[in-house]
Design a protein around this nucleic acid. Structure first.
Lengths: 341, 341
DNA sequence: CTGAAAGCGCTTACAG
DNA sequence: CTGAAAGCGCTTACAG
C-alpha cells in the first residue's frame, strides 16, 4: 500500500529548526539580509528546505498575496497556427519568469467567451492577453476600468483605450495587392468576412486603396462566417459567379484555407486559373502546387512585445500607467501562386 | 478615476442578512435542505448572491478543500494536430463539468517535462492527462504511487501499471502495409524514430509482420529525432540511398511532415515516384497532389475515453481502484498516394 | 434550524 | 536578530 506522503509545510521546517515560521518565510522569500537574519541560520533553513524538497503551497501564497502568477490567454481558436505560434512564444517567455499561461479558445462563441473571462477572474489571473473576441468589447472595457492588466493583440477597438500590439494591416494588403497588379493581374478579388473587427476593416481598406490607385475594379466578397462548411458554400457561389477574376487575396488564414478547399472542390488550379495571395502564412501554403504567396505576420515579435508590455504593467500593478500601442510590419513571402501572368 | 471594486465575500453576504457565514456557505453549496435551512432564508441568500454577483474565491475554496478543479495536460507539443485535436475535445468535456485544463508542451525536453510536472503539483491539479514523455517514467511512477489520478494516452509503459487509452498500433500498420502490398508495391520502406516508446515499437512490429508474411524485404529507417531540420537531412540521405523503394510508410504525423518536406527538396513526386501512407491524418495530406493515404486515429473517442476514466478516478479520489486500459481501432483513409501501381 | 470557531498554508506589520 | 499574531476567504465538525 503506497504511503500518502503529506506535503511538508512551512510549519514543518520551522518546527524542525525550532524557529518561527516568520523566519522561515523571510529566508524563503530572499529577505534574509533585509531582515537581518544571521547567515548561519539562513543556511540552515535553506539546507533543510532543499533536503525536504519543500515547495510553498501556491494556493496559500496566492490567497494571501492576491497574486497567482497565472496569465489568461484568450483567442478564437488556439489550434489556428497564427494563434498557436504566438501562444508558444508567450508561454516560453512566461515560463522563464515563473508565470503560467491559461490558454482558452472561444470558438467564436460570445457566451463562451464571457464565461471564460469569468473563469479567468475566478482563478485570479494576474493579467490578460487577448485577441479580443467580438461581443466582448463591453466586458473588456469594464475589466480595464478595474485597472486589471490587459494587453490586446491582433485586433484593437477604436473606443477602448488600452495597450495593444497589432500589425500594419492596411499597408500590408496594399503592398500585396500592388504586387499582384505589377505582375499584370487586373481583376483582383478580395475575400474577407463580414465583420466590424478593426483589423479586417483595415485589410480591406488597404486592398481598396491599391486597386483604386490603379483604376482597377474592387471585387469584394464578405462572408458571413459561421463555420468552414458554410464558408466554402459561399465561396463556391462567389467563384462561380466571378469567373473573370484572375487573382484573389484572402484576408486571413482560415479564410484562405477555406478558399483552397473551395478550389479543390471546383477543380480550380492555383496560378494557372487564378493567382492567390494569403493574409497569414502557414505550412499548407508551401505544400500547394504551386506554393502560395503570403503576408507573414511576425509572430515572435508580436509575442515578445505583448509580454514586454504586460510584464511592465504587472510590475506597476494598480497604477494607471500610460497605454502602450505597437504596430509591427509584416513580410510578403512571394511564391509561385502570384508569379507574373 | 476608476473605482477599485472590492470583491464581495461570503462575509459581506452574511453581514447584510445578519446571519452567519456558515449558513451562507451551506446555501451556496446546495446543502440547504440537508442542513435544514428554511426555504425563506435560503431564498434570501440566493437572491442576494445573485444581486451582488457573488463568486466564491476559488483560491480559498481550493486551499480549504484541497481540490482545484484543474486538470494538467502534458504532451510533447500541443501545436501538433494530433495533440491539439485531443486537447480540444478534452477541454470541451472538462469545461462542461466545471474543470479547467492547464495545457503544457515539453518540446521533447525531459528537464522541462519534469519542471512542468512540478508546476502541476504546485498548482495542485486534481488530475493528470499525459502522452508520457520519454524520461518521465520514474517521475510518473512515483506520482501514481501517491494515488494521484493519472491517465495516459497515445503511449503506455510496460512496467508502469496505470490507466491508459491507446490505439491498436500494431494492427493499424499491419493493415496499412498490407494495403500497399495488395496494390502491387514490393519495396516498402518504413520511416520511424529511434525510440523505445511503446507505440512506435508496436507500429514497427505491425509493418514487419506484414512484409514478413508476404516475403518482402523490411527496409526500415530509424531517425534520431532532434528537430525537423536534422530529421530532413537524415531522410534525404535515406531516400537517396534507397532509390529502389516504391512505397513508404511514415510512422507518425511529424515524421510524415518531414518526409513530405524531404520529397519537395528532392523533387520526388508522390505516387508517381513513390507511394505514401502516413500514420496520423492531418489536413496537409489532403492538400498534397495526389492526396496522401493515412491511418486516422479516433481523436474524439480517445479524448472521451480519457475523460471518462479520469472523472471516474476523481470521484473515488484516493482509493486505489482498478486500472482501466482501453485500446481503440483506427481508420485507414485511402487516397491517391497509394493507388494501384 | 443556526452559529462560533478551528484550520487550510502562507505573508507581513508590529513588537521587542 | 527573531517571533506571536492577524488575516487572506473559504468549509465543516461540533455545539446548542
Amino acid at each position: 500500500m503506497p504511503v500518502m506522503k503529506k506535503r511538508v509545510s512551512i510549519k514543518d521546517i520551522a518546527k524542525q529548526l525550532n524557529i518561527s515560521i516568520t523566519t522561515v518565510s523571510f529566508v524563503i522569500n530572499g529577505k534574509a539580509r533585509e531582515k537581518n537574519i544571521s547567515e548561519s541560520l539562513t543556511k540552515k533553513v535553506l539546507d533543510l528546505v532543499a533536503e525536504l524538497n519543500y515547495q510553498p503551497n501556491t494556493l496559500a501564497t496566492s490567497l494571501r498575496t492576491g497574486k497567482t502568477k497565472i496569465i489568461g490567454f484568450l483567442v478564437d481558436d488556439i489550434s489556428e497556427p497564427f494563434f498557436s505560434g504566438i501562444a508558444r512564444r508567450i508561454d516560453e517567455i512566461a515560463s522563464n519568469l515563473g508565470y503560467k499561461i491559461l490558454f482558452s479558445s472561444t470558438r467564436n462563441d460570445t457566451e463562451k467567451a464571457i464565461e471564460l473571462l469569468q473563469i479567468f477572474k475566478d482563478r485570479h489571473v494576474d493579467g490578460y492577453i487577448m485577441a479580443l473576441p467580438e461581443g466582448l468589447e463591453e466586458e473588456v472595457k469594464k475589466l480595464i476600468q478595474t485597472d486589471a492588466p490587459v494587453v490586446l493583440f491582433d485586433r484593437y477597438v477604436q473606443d477602448v483605450k488600452t495597450d495593444y500590439v497589432i500589425i500594419d494591416n492596411q499597408s500590408s494588403t496594399y503592398e500585396a495587392t500592388e504586387h499582384l497588379i505589377k505582375n499584370n493581374y487586373k481583376k483582383i478579388g478580395f475575400v474577407t468576412i463580414d465583420t466590424a473587427q478593426q483589423q479586417m476593416v483595415d485589410r480591406l481598406a488597404g486592398y481598396e486603396s491599391a486597386v483604386g490607385k490603379y483604376n482597377l475594379p474592387a471585387i469584394v466578397k464578405k462572408i458571413k462566417y459561421v463555420n468552414s462548411a458554410e464558408s466554402i458554400e459561399e465561396m463556391i457561389k462567389f467563384f462561380k459567379a466571378e469567373k473573370q477574376l484572375d487573382a484573389v487575396v484572402f484576408a486571413a488564414n482560415y479564410i484562405c484555407l477555406d478558399g483552397l478547399r473551395t478550389f479543390r472542390k471546383l477543380g480550380i488550379q492555383i496560378h494557372q486559373d487564378i493567382a492567390v495571395v494569403s493574409f497569414d502564412d502557414f505550412e499548407i501554403l508551401e505544400f500547394c502546387e504551386p506554393p502560395v504567396t503570403a503576408i507573414a505576420q511576425p509572430l515572435e515579435a508580436i509575442a515578445e512585445n505583448v509580454m514586454k508590455i504586460l510584464l511592465n504593467k504587472l510590475k506597476k500593478a494598480g497604477k494607471s500607467i500610460e497605454k502602450t500601442q505597437v504596430s509591427l510590419p509584416t513580410i510578403l513571402n512571394i511564391r509561385g501562386s502570384s508569379a507574373k501572368k
